[in-house]
Structure formats: C-alpha cells, structure tokens
C-alpha cells in the first residue's frame, strides 16, 4: 500500500459493525429468553449507531451523529414498552420463554 497511513480505514468500522450486527441476529435467532432477545436487539442498534458515527466522521457531517441521538431515543422508548410487555407476560405465564407465546387467542 503506497498511501500514507492516516487514521483508521473506514471499512474496519464497517466490518466491526457487521460482526456486531450478525452476533445480534444470532442471539435473536437462538435464544429463547425474551430478555436476551431484547438485549440482542440493543446490540444490533448499537452496531448501526457505530456505523452512523463512522460515516459522520468520514464525511465531516454532524447529521449522522444527530441521527444516533434519535436511534437512542427510539431504543429507550422501545425498551420501556418492551419490558412492560415482558412483565405482563411473566405475570400471565410465569415464564419469559417465547415458546409459551405460541397461542395468540386471548
């Protein structure tokens, strides 16, 4: 490589975000505990946040970082409602296993 080494290449961030996102997808797919599934979703959101900040730094634009704020706001709201749903689910079935949610009959 002939170019002068300056800073971190952008595609390193892309690859790191891809790895974190795939780990999150894996967690959503094979854990049965609903809380762990929520945590995997948070992991995926953070991978996307990292990518947004990397692109914002690459192009010198602060809009990407402001988008990260909105992602955090939506994630906070999602977690609040999701954990409330989880508490209701535990109250009804004494378990947070998502396999007990297979009957949507009321």
């Amino acid at each position: 490589m002939s170019e002068v080494v300056r800073g971190i290449p952008l595609n390193w961030f892309i690859i790191l975000s891809s790895i974190l996102f795939s780990i999150g997808v894996m967690g959503v797919l094979f854990r049965r505990n609903a809380i762990i599934i929520f945590m995997s979703v948070e992991l995926m959101l953070n991978a996307v946040n990292l990518l947004l900040v990397a692109f914002a730094a690459k192009w010198g634009d602060a809009s990407g970082q402001v988008f990260v704020f909105f992602t955090m706001a939506v994630a906070a709201a999602e977690v609040a409602v999701g954990l409330a749903i989880l508490v209701v689910m535990y109250r009804n079935s004494k378990s947070t296993d998502i396999d007990v949610l297979n009957k949507l009959k009321g």
């Binding site: 971190i8 952008l10 690459k58």
Partner: peptide, 9 residues
C-alpha cells in the same frame, strides 16, 4: 467498500 482512512481525526 471504502478503504480510505477517516481523514480528520
């Protein structure tokens, strides 16, 4: 995709 470094750290 983009192997250039992030220029202004």
């Amino acid at each position: 995709a983009d192997t250039t470094a992030i220029a202004t750290p």
